[in-house]
Structure formats: C-alpha cells, structure tokens
Amino acid sequence: MSTSDRDWDEGGPERLYVITGGRADSTEQADLDLVTLIVSREEPKAGIQPELAAILRVCRSPVSVAEISAHLTLPTSVISVLLADLLADGRVEARTPASSRPDIALIEAVIDGLQNL
C-alpha cells in the first residue's frame, strides 16, 4: 500500500511488548492525537531507555506524534505509551491540536497558508 525506503521492524508483538514494558494496553497510553506536537524539554540522560532517548532527540524541535512514529519505526500505540512516561515527569511538552470544530479564524489561517504555497 505504501512504500518507504526503510523496512519496518518486523519484530512482532513480543518486541513491542518489551519496549513498552508490557503496557501496550490503552489505559497506559497518553491521550494524544496523531498531530499533537511534542517538544523535548531536556537532553537524554545516560542510561535512559534507548527508545525514550530517541524520542527526546527527535523532538528537539516540535514534531507530531505521527512523525515520531515514522522516525522510530514504531506504531503510534507504542509511541503513546512511551510519551506517557516522558509527559508524566515533564521531559517533553505536548502542544494539543487545534479544535475539531474549526472557527472562522482557523479556517482563514489555513486558506492563507495554502495560498502562499
């Protein structure tokens, strides 16, 4: 359906289970949208779980949850669990998406932005 230069890790469910410490269940996921922007507040410390370190590095500038998933080649469900950890102690900041009921100002801003493309 789609091609990418790099193959997704075919590690299977076991690998994902290890990365999230077995918390792939939805109750442990942060309530994040695919387009919630994440920004790191600190550099990874020594000894940190590699996946968490990778997120902190990728998010030095604002990056959406979907982009984090793409950069780490991990499903968004797994990214949400990892982000819950980082959000809990303030190592990253989440910037929530604009509301789904767009007001006129938002719609005009999107139109202006597209017209400048």
């Binding site: 790099r6 890790d9 590690g11 690998r15 290890v18 949208d33 695919l34 387009v35 919630t36 922007l37 920004v39 590699p50 996946e51 990778a54 590095r57 990728v58 030095r60 500038s61 604002p62 990056v63 959406s64 982009e67 950069h71 780490l72 080649t73 910037r95 929530t96 998406p97 604009a98 767009p102 938002l106 999107v110």
Partner: peptide, 28 residues
C-alpha cells in the same frame, strides 16, 4: 532478531524542522 533502536531511528533533517513557535496542528 531484535534490532537496536539506534540503528533504525532517523532524526528530522535540519531543513525539515518546524519552527520552535509551532503550537498547533490540524489534519486533513
């Protein structure tokens, strides 16, 4: 085979970074 995450992560290219002022996103 379990691969190491550091081998598979790509960081956003410099020219692909969003401005630090980016505060909200919408989707279509």
């Amino acid at each position: 085979m379990v691969s190491r995450i550091s081998d598979t992560v790509t960081e956003p290219r410099r020219e692909d970074r969003l401005p630090s002022t980016a505060s909200s996103a919408v989707k279509i």
